[in-house]
Simulated scan of single mutants.
Amino acid sequence: MTAQAPYPVGTPGAPWGAAERAAWLSRQTRQRSYQAEVLDAIERLRPRFQLVEYGRLHYGPDSYPLLAIRSRDWNDELPVALVTGGVHGYETSGVHGALRFVDQHAAGYAGRVNLLVAPCISPWAYERIHRWNANAIDPNRSFRDDSPAEESAALMRLVAPVRDRVLVHIDLHETTDTDESEFRPALAARDGKPHEPGEIPDGFYVVDDSEHPQPGFQQAVIAAVAMVTHIAPADRNGEIIGSPVVAPGVIEYPLRQLGLCAGITDARYKTTTEVYPDSPRATAEQCNAAQAVAVCAAIDYALAHP
Rank of each mutant, 00 (worst) to 15 (best):
H173P: 09
V206A: 03
D179K: 04
V168E: 04
V166I: 11
F183H: 15
F204H: 13
L187Q: 14
K193Y: 00
A153I: 03
A154K: 11
L172Y: 05
R165N: 14
P185E: 10
P185K: 07
D208R: 07
A154N: 09
T175Y: 02
G192K: 07
H173A: 10
A189K: 06
Y205N: 00
E199M: 04
L187V: 00
H173N: 12
V168I: 11
L172T: 03
E150F: 04
A149S: 15
S152F: 04
P197Y: 10
T178A: 14
P194M: 02
P148A: 10
T176A: 13
R190N: 01
E196S: 13
D179H: 14
T175N: 06
E182Q: 10
T176N: 11
T175Q: 13
P148E: 09
D208W: 11
A186C: 14
T178M: 12
G192F: 08
A160N: 04
L158E: 06
P161A: 10
H195V: 05
G203E: 09
P148T: 09
V162Y: 10
D202W: 05
V166Y: 07
V207K: 04
E174Y: 10
F204E: 03
D202M: 10
V168Q: 09
V166L: 11
D209Y: 02
F204C: 05
D171M: 08
R184M: 10
D164E: 15
D164L: 01
G198N: 08
A186M: 15
